[in-house]
Design a protein around this nucleic acid. Sequence first.
DNA 1: ATCCTCATGTAAGCTGTTACATGATTCC
DNA 2: GGAATCATGTAACAGCTTACATGAGGAT
Lengths: 209, 209
Amino acid sequence: MTNRQVSKKQEQRTEQTEGPELPPTAWAVLGLLSFPGERTGYDLKKWADASLRFFYWSPAISQIYAELRRLEAAGYATSRRSGPEEPRTKRRYAITEAGRAALAAWAGTDGGPVVLKHPLLLRVWLGHLAAPERLRTLVEEHIAHTRAELAAVREALAHAEDVDAWAHPRVALRWSERQHHAELELAEAMLEDLRELARQGGDDAPTQG
Amino acid sequence: MTNRQVSKKQEQRTEQTEGPELPPTAWAVLGLLSFPGERTGYDLKKWADASLRFFYWSPAISQIYAELRRLEAAGYATSRRSGPEEPRTKRRYAITEAGRAALAAWAGTDGGPVVLKHPLLLRVWLGHLAAPERLRTLVEEHIAHTRAELAAVREALAHAEDVDAWAHPRVALRWSERQHHAELELAEAMLEDLRELARQGGDDAPTQG
DNA sequence: ATCCTCATGTAAGCTGTTACATGATTCC
DNA sequence: GGAATCATGTAACAGCTTACATGAGGAT
């Protein structure tokens, strides 16, 4: 066995109930691992890109590798290196019982406020500086992009169909589908607001640039 | 692909004189400054807490001070220290012409994808590990919190009423009002989904402590 | 032959947060 | 007199991203 050695040192000082404090990303990665099957960091990244990112976020691959090492050090995951029986050498990770317990405890926790950073809204907010038409174009591009994302969510949903173990991920993706739909309506309504603004104060439009 | 995140070796320079590249936070702070009036860092923080945060995010006060210094160094803002005519010594910032021009150029730019990190969804996604009832409680708490936020958005909107210079911030806040409303409906729908899930596979509920 | 995907990492560096330090003013 | 708010910063450091390094296997 060629796994990284986890010294027993950290086990000794931490109380049974409280592991080390981990950032949300670590829990997200551990969450990926909590579904059946062993996975490589590379696998996890693809999984995250295809589904996690719609309601949370997909960490950089290097970050995933880092979190996996941290999780293993914490005793929440184990890994083993594939031997010569496989074409490629890869390290597969699996969640441990301690990891599952810690994750379950964390999942029952209040996660705090939603983080929403909407670059488009920042620009609309600054609309007094922009050419109104350009602003509307930005909104329309956002709508187009959101439509594409919605299609991707639906693809993820289709992929998760009928698998028992994925009932909750399915709920999350359904939420995400509706969320993208709402985002489209929100953008359309804002477009209307912007048009209305242009109709009223149509003079003060900066046309520089 | 658009010119979003090209950056590789494409180090082709655009011939226009471009100021230093700034992070979105700097633009947000400069944006705060782009509305009429001189303001202190402290003022800006309150402004951001009361309105920017609903659709973007409110930086830490220490970060605001840092960005202001950076903006001044870039020539996008000027500051002057208040003299003895005022009770407190404070540093007031104002946007410069160069700053306004740079900000306007930036505002016409494609801002890239929305960042959405929804801690609640992360937990729902991991629902197979949680007690179903606990999960529903978390969603209900989220709903209560969102209602409070919605009230805060409405307060900000009321505060921005009838001021000509704030027409665009008002559009952004209106978007935010609708967004919070949508968030409530999304959460209610998810609650229904979770109840439905519980009705079907009601057995597999983990009840460990 | 070459390019793409698989696969795993290291290093540098920036963004941004928390905690801390400092002091004045206002309110009760 | 004490607390809250106003007001501005510094320092330490966590968290992440990008760029880079490396190499094998599969496809054209």
